[in-house]
Computed example of a mutant assay.
Amino acid sequence: MILRTIGCVELNSIAWGMHVADEMVKAASVQLVMARPTCPGRYLVVVTGDTGAVQSSVEVGRELAADMAVDWFTIPSVHPDVIPALSATSIIPKINALGVIETCTTASCILAADAAAKAGEVQLIEIRMAAGLGGKAFVTMTGDVGSVKASVEAGIEAVGDAGPVHSHVVIPAPSEELKANLL
């Protein structure tokens, strides 16, 4: 499946998350990419399709979720590294500099990852979503130091007030031991 536009609604209820996922798919011509619980008792719904359909689907999800919606987005022309990073299937032959952006919601982390990937010559390693992280999420990326710095800054800027960004770091020369734990 080639994903061009993705949309997401993150909720603080698993039961309502399932209901919202069902209604989002019924509301517009979209495909469900992901619908699953995350910590701490949140539920993440990601859909894909034409931009207008995704926007409509996300709006229906937001309206239905009401105050249970934690975060949401629509990303037209999502970077191709985002989906493999979400599923931890990125193929990274070598880690140079390492960038990490840690956010307070999964949705804002996906926004940060997309912006970071588009901003510089980096490869996304993984987007880790809230499992065992108290609801937070983080994205890791690699490339040369300058590209990683630019990408981390672009990712932070893309989150804006949606996140917020909890922390971020650029490690110019990570140890071999750390690299082994990332791949």
Rank of each mutant, 00 (worst) to 15 (best):
S147W: 01
L182T: 01
P76V: 04
I127V: 15
D161T: 12
Q123W: 01
V139W: 02
K26G: 07
V152T: 04
G120H: 03
P93I: 00
K118M: 02
T48P: 05
D114Q: 07
E177Q: 06
E176A: 08
S29K: 14
P164K: 13
E23R: 14
T38Q: 11
A119Y: 02
V100L: 15
M68R: 15
I83P: 11
S151A: 15
E59M: 05
I75N: 09
T140R: 12
E59D: 13
V60T: 15
V78M: 12
A27E: 10
M68I: 03
M141Y: 03
T5R: 04
I156N: 03
V82W: 11
G155H: 04
A15I: 09
A154L: 04
I6Q: 08
K118P: 08
P40K: 11
L86P: 08
A137H: 02
V33R: 06
A180L: 01
A116N: 05
I171F: 00
L183Q: 10
E176W: 00
C8D: 01
L182N: 00
S13N: 12
S29V: 10
T48K: 15
N181H: 10
Q123L: 04
K118S: 07
V165K: 08
I171A: 00
M24N: 08
I6R: 05
A117H: 07
P80K: 06
T48E: 14
S29P: 00
T140I: 03
V145S: 01
A173C: 00
G160W: 07
I14R: 06
T105M: 08
D114L: 05
A35E: 13
G120A: 14
W16L: 15
E23W: 00
I92P: 02
K94T: 13
V20Y: 07
S77R: 15
A117T: 03
T140D: 01
G49T: 10
S151Q: 02
D50M: 11
I75A: 12
K118R: 15
G163V: 05
